[in-house]
């Protein structure tokens, strides 16, 4: 095993005294990006841009090239918007600010909601959760435990209840209690299941009936270990419920989650949060620089 940190050491040797990028550097860059799940198309796009910029700037030092590569990657990822601040203590434009959390099975939706509720609470906001997964075994019980951990109330109905009704109840309760934030969980579903995607769209519509712009955010959760299928997931979820932001979970392993670069670029959605563990505090606001740094760090095989 070699460490990726050595890449920039090699970079130094490669570019010293040259005005083009050595093929070996590009090959290695390609390997790093592909093994980070960046995907072939996005990787080639990045490499093309790096090459073009180097050609244009004539001469670059290793340090400049290093920065340039990182810039070219970061550039692809959309920045967050003011209407949906990622910082938990930033003032929110709506009250209640309604967030719906969606994604395929087992990516970390429920856990992310628990962590978000905790972070909002820490920032002094009042939060309410809605148990919109009425389908999976013990999904409500799971969210209940997270609600306890975060110290926030949970709006729920029985297992098997209409998830749209639960979502509606949640918003209604949030309004009645003057909550700052309402976060609605949804059952995991594969993006290929039309019926379940329609159900999600209905949930969203019903929320909009109670508060015209609700949900103000639709957060798509992606698992960092997922490969190129994440692009398909994003495409379908965006199509059904207009995703406004991404959360990338399970970055505490060795998976890099590089596919979000292409997702963010192709669909123009910002990455807002990263999940870095199973504990209540293991959620961070996404930082592009740190993320790109992570691609070049750690062990590869």
């Amino acid at each position: 095993d070699k460490t990726r940190d050595s890449f920039f050491g090699k970079l130094d040797r490669m570019v010293r005294g040259k005005d083009t990028v050595d093929a070996e550097v590009l090959d290695e860059l390609e390997e790093i990006l592909i093994t980070s799940d960046v995907g072939v198309d996005t990787t080639l796009d990045i490499i093309d841009h790096v090459e073009a910029r180097v050609a244009q700037d004539q001469y670059v030092s290793a340090q400049e090239l290093n920065g340039l590569i990182r810039d070219e990657i970061a550039r692809l990822m959309l920045e967050g918007s003011e209407e949906r601040p990622a910082d938990f203590d930033a003032p929110l434009p709506n009250q209640p600010h309604v967030i719906m959390v969606v994604g395929v099975n087992g990516v970390g939706k429920t856990t992310t909601i628990g962590k978000m509720a905790h972070k909002y609470r820490q920032a002094g906001k009042s939060v309410l959760m809605g148990a919109g997964d009425t389908f999976r075994a013990a999904a409500i019980e799971q969210l209940e435990i997270w609600a306890d951990r975060a110290g926030v109330p949970l709006i729920k109905q029985k297992h098997g209840a209409d998830p749209a009704a639960v979502a509606y109840d949640t918003i209604e309760a949030a309004e009645a209690r003057d909550a700052d934030v309402a976060i609605v969980d949804t059952a995991g579903r594969l993006h290929t299941k039309g019926g379940l995607m329609d159900e999600l769209a209905k949930m969203k519509r019903v929320m909009g009936r109670k508060i015209p712009d609700a949900p103000h955010e639709v957060l798509l959760v992606l698992d960092a270990s997922t490969g190129q299928n994440a692009l398909r997931q994003a495409e379908e979820f965006i199509d059904s419920v207009d995703v406004t932001g991404l959360a990338l979970t399970k970055l505490d392993g060795t998976a890099k989650g590089g596919v979000v670069i292409g997702v963010s670029h192709q669909f123009q959605v910002p990455v807002k949060y990263i999940g870095v563990g199973e504990a209540v505090e293991d959620l961070q606001v996404f930082d592009r620089k740190g993320f790109v740094q992570g691609l070049f760090k750690g062990v590869e095989s």
């Binding site: 395929v104 698992d223 270990s225 997922t226 490969g227 190129q228 392993g253 060795t254 998976a255 095989s301």
Partner: peptide, 14 residues
């Protein structure tokens, strides 16, 4: 193992 897993599958499997 989740069949949607990407490049990291080799690390975890190993």
């Amino acid at each position: 193992v989740d069949s949607m897993t990407g490049q990291d599958a080799v690390n975890t499997a190993k």
